[in-house]
Design a protein around this nucleic acid. Structure first.
Length: 576
RNA sequence: CGGGGCGUAGCGCAGUCCGGUAGCGCAUCUGCUUUGGGAGCAGAGGGUCGCUGGUUCAAAUCCAGUCGCCCCGACCA
């Protein structure tokens, strides 16, 4: 690529509304431009980086036997009604109407379409297993697009689906995807980790996410540096022991607490530690209301509640609470409600003595509550949020909490979709069984952004060779100096014949401009051809990742480039 | 959807409080000089001040509405 002809609108100044590093750099380096909230133009250099990511993904998917196909983005809404996901997705799905006023949607994912294809075409277990994948635009009307490429409304995604006749085969293909993903992220140069995750609206029997640690991330993960336990905070657990010494029971009693609603306020008012409170939260779910109890110094984890309360779960409105219980939020408690409402108590409350909680009467609380005696919850569950420093559930060492970017998510779906849509095959016994499915996604734009986020410095992007739009830039510093230009041209042609992606900065620009752009755009290797060095038969080379600079003779440039390239690729080599 | 901020030239901003001829830097175009870390001089082009309505002799500026963008939260493969 001759940069004098390239469309590469780099920015000297930082765009004012870009906050996260990757977004700023993608704008400044001329990779993307916004069109509307959460929708971006990919300019040539951005597209080239995406293509590098897609190539890695394709190679690794093909390696495990994946077959690439392409499914339509435009879907009839009816197919989504079959599984009820048109409702589950709600306004996250884009809806539109065709000229005959038929309702269509833009696909946010493709389980239904895959299922439809399978039920039409697959009859026998002998045609299974199948691994199908595609790389293509997804549309999701996010409530709040943000952080540049990290959360958009239209984005490229590699989504893969496995079809098997039983769960053993699913487990095997799931593991294959897990390994393929490890290779993909390794090859992109990312220091990823894998966490157990919540399946959310996808459903199914288990899922794991591929994360990289980053302050720009939207997920929070709990990690044990000691034994390697890792989980999304949505599902993380810890091994907290009860920390209250045994003591003799306090008399159960109702006490006035005028105007004191929060645990904070009441605890100060009554002179009891927050850990002595039972926090009572009311949620609405698929089967009506439920009261959720956690200790006063704990937080309820709504992701853990979702499986218990169903897809429609949401916090109850103040009016709903008042109608249900007869008291306002702030004065709620489980005592006396056992017959009236489902009570889900966090396991940490089990057996606690002398607790305080709301009296279900405005301006009053009760003290001397003995859990299991004064009231008995409907069920026990782990519904609390795990925090930094709590003991690891596996080894007991203190847990760490980090922000992370989710790059990939793999799901064991089971038969949720195939059963709902009648996608069945005949098994070895001639019995009709629903196809067992798995689904596996990687956000391509997010992957590119994560690589930038991961490797940037004050001067700009630092691409690994594997992801760089161009691996080398040749920079004749003075375009009017014929010898510089001639040598630059020769090197450029020579490197091109190797099949490398090489750029020639033949712009008639001052050296400073070329240096700044080269650093900003993150070419892994710079070949700097200046008049003075050339007079001594030397050419300067700079490696972007560690700023190593060397002066070499002209005929040594290629050897040095090869060496650097090998070293760089070795860093991103997946384990065998 | 709740809270906050911002819309003035391609980009970054001032001007708005206190109404009175549309500004600055960078970028762009022309010419000359310059060429190892975002050049210098001289000249030039470019703006319905997001949009609609209102107040006023007069609105970028005041009032009302509306649209868009960003941030925090809610939500979320």
């Amino acid at each position: 690529m001759r940069l004098s002809k390239a469309f590469m609108p780099t920015l000297k100044e930082i765009p004012s509304d870009a906050v996260v590093t990757s977004h700023r750099l993608m704008l400044r380096a001329g990779l993307v431009r916004p069109l509307l909230a959460g929708v971006y133009n990919y300019l040539p250099f951005g597209q080239k980086a995406s293509l590098k990511a897609m190539t890695i993904i394709r190679e690794e998917m093909d390696r495990i036997g994946g077959q690439e196909l392409l499914l339509p983005v435009l879907n009839p809404v009816e197919i989504w009604q079959e599984t009820g996901r048109d409702k589950d997705m709600g306004s996250e799905m884009f809806h539109l109407h065709d000229r005959k006023d038929r309702e269509l949607v833009l696909a946010p994912t493709h389980e239904e379409i895959i299922c439809n294809l399978a039920r039409n075409e697959i009859r026998s277990y002998k045609e299974l297993p199948q691994i199908w994948y595609q790389i293509q635009s997804k549309f999701r009307d996010e409530p709040r697009p943000r952080s540049g490429e990290l959360r958009t409304r239209q984005f490229f995604m590699k989504d893969a689906y496995t079809l098997t006749v039983n769960y053993e085969d699913l487990d095997e293909l799931y593991l294959k995807h897990r390994e393929a993903y490890q290779r993909i992220f390794r090859r992109a140069g990312l220091d990823y980790f894998i966490v157990g995750a919540s399946s959310g609206v996808m459903g199914g029997t288990g899922s794991e996410e591929f994360m990289i640690e980053s302050d720009a991330g939207e997920d929070t993960c709990v990690l044990c540096r000691e034994c390697g336990y890792a989980a999304n905070q949505e599902v993380a657990t810890s091994n907290l022991k009860e920390d209250h010494p045994p003591e003799s029971p306090v008399q159960f009693k109702k006490v006035p607490t005028p105007g004191k609603r929060t645990v904070e306020e009441v605890s100060e008012f009554l002179g009891l530690p927050k850990s002595r409170f039972i926090k009572s939260l009311v949620f609405m779910g698929d089967e009506g209301a439920a009261m959720v109890l956690v200790r006063g110094d704990d937080e309820a984890n709504e992701s853990k509640l979702q499986p218990l309360l169903g897809a429609s779960m949401r916090p109850a409105q103040p009016e709903e609470v008042l109608e249900l219980i007869g008291a306002e939020i702030g004065f709620l408690g489980p005592v006396g409600l056992e017959k009236k409402v489902r009570i889900i108590a966090d396991k940490r409350l089990e057996g606690l003595r002398n607790m305080a909680t709301g009296a279900n009467e405005n301006e009053h609380h009760v003290i001397g509550v003995q859990v299991g005696e004064t009231f008995e919850p409907t069920e026990w569950a782990d519904v609390r949020m795990v925090h930094e420093g709590e003991p690891c559930p596996k080894c007991g060492k203190p847990l760490g909490v980090v922000r992370a970017i989710e790059l990939g998510h793999i799901f064991k779906l089971g038969t949720k979709y195939s059963a709902a849509m009648g996608a069945t095959v005949l098994d070895q016994n001639g019995k009709e069984v629903p196809i067992v499915m798995g689904s596996y996604g990687i956000g391509v734009g997010r992957l590119v952004a994560a690589v930038i986020e991961n490797g940037a410095d004050d001067d700009g992007i630092v691409w690994p060779v594997s992801m760089a739009p161009y691996e080398v830039v040749i920079m004749p510093l003075k375009i009017k100096h014929e010898e510089s230009v001639q040598i630059a041209d020769e090197l450029y042609e020579e490197i091109r014949t190797l099949g490398w992606d090489v750029a020639l900065d033949d712009r008639n620009a001052r050296p400073g401009v070329k240096f700044k752009d080269a650093d900003l755009m993150g070419f892994p290797f710079q070949v700097i051809i200046g008049e003075k060095n050339l007079a001594e038969g030397k050419i300067e080379m700079k490696r972007r990742c560690d700023s190593e600079k060397v002066l070499v003779a002209k005929d040594e440039v290629l050897a040095k480039l090869k060496q650097w390239r090998e070293e760089d690729l070795a860093r991103t080599l997946p384990e065998a």
